[in-house]
Design a protein around this nucleic acid. Sequence first.
DNA 1: ACGTTGACCTATA
DNA 2: GTATAGGCCAACG
Length: 110
Amino acid sequence: MIKDTSFFEKVYEVVRKIPGGRVSTYGHIADYLGSKGAARMVGWAMNVSHHTDPPVPAHRVVNRNGLLTGKIHFRTEDMMQKLLENEGLTICDDTVMNFEEVLWDPLKEL
DNA sequence: ACGTTGACCTATA
DNA sequence: GTATAGGCCAACG
């Protein structure tokens, strides 16, 4: 589809740029897109990312607290944690350990 | 076009 | 420190 879905495509592109072993946050992504307070928008974009191609590593996107809020939207909640652990991250109580160290900010990295 | 929703964030009690 | 309320922007029904 050549037709871009505005912010959605932007969100997908940014999330796809997230390197392995790193995680990003909705607020920072929204801020990178220009809509600072549209953090909810980013999450919604992830919701439709299921029919997006190429697929978006939504499991690398967590909330401001590093909490895996969107894990419930996956096929299985444990899958998101498993994927993050597979990236080399440490998840404890549905929260990313060393979150600040693995945090990948598009504004800083890009 | 209006109202509701949505994987959030910030502030106040 | 935890709980609740409001606000934010954009898409969906």
